[in-house]
Amino acid sequence: MSFIKFENISKSFDTLKVLKGINLEVKEGELLTLLGPSGCGKSTLLRCLAGLEEVGEGRIYLDGKDITYVDARQRRIGMVFQQYSLFPNMTVRKNLEFGLKIKKLPKDQIRKEVDEALQMVGLTDKDNAYPGQLSGGQQQRVALARAIVVKPKVLLLDEPLSAIDAKLRKSLQTEIRRIQKELNITTIFVTHDQDEAMIMSDRICLLKEGKLEQIGTPIEIYTEPKTTFAAGFIGNYNVFEHSEFEKITGEKNVLPVSVAIRPETITISKEKKEEANAYEFKGKVVESRSRGNVLRYVIDVNGIRIEADALFRSFSIFQDNCDVWLSVAKHDCLSVEREAV
């Protein structure tokens, strides 16, 4: 049974329709990521659940209760914003105490709960610091502690790591996931970063222009994109019209729909491999880009550009303008729907 249920949610700002009939269910204790490009409505959907935006049409259910028109203060939802959400006039401890004092808990219990939350985010030594004295990463950890200390039913994370540098971001991703699992708290995470979504989520919900594009586990979304948009957004797939794919392979009517191929499923070699159940075609290296342990090649095949990845090893380095053979297993050529433009 679902813990959170969005039923046909629509929302407009003036004439702009931001959410267009979203139906989505979130299970208890799972971390669901709302993923999509800027302006796709992911933050708006989150804010509708929090009660910070009014729903235009549809219903929202939390733990079996209709909360569509329940005041945000009564929903028991904790939220971490992109940045700058800590109260600057209060120390870290006072920030955490704020929500508990509103709940009128006894002093001893407040102290205990705050200590536990600070310990959970590893900031016990910063309890008397003001937000202005903390780094961006520390501030977001405090914001997380403040959101969970009140024991919310749901935790909402609205791009909480977008303003943090890459290295720290990775460690915070792991930390957030650890805390979420430890507390078994139902969490909705918003991001536009597909790597972040892949690392952190139980399930990913891909949104496009206010509509739900695809939902599934990170592996499902990555390996079985249903549309060209999903293929392009999640796995940096090569997406071809069937006519383009025919031009590449030199075969007629191979697949009657659009085809998506992940760059890492393409093998590059100097010689033709003559493999069974694979498409093989010749191309010319246009350029190569290093992505750490992987080299990404852009290869021209009959006037169509294909991206292919190869592990950074001496025998897999090909110079620009060099002729190469590309091979891709037939089962790695996925049929995808091309959405109407």
């Binding site: 910070l52 939220m79 940045q83 959400s85 929500g99 509103i102 403040r146």
Partner: peptide, 18 residues
């Protein structure tokens, strides 16, 4: 005065006066 402060306080149960 940042919108995030108001919204955070609101979600924690604080009204305007608080």
């Amino acid at each position: 005065i940042r919108k995030e402060w108001k919204e955070s306080a609101y979600l924690m149960g604080a009204g305007n006066i608080k």
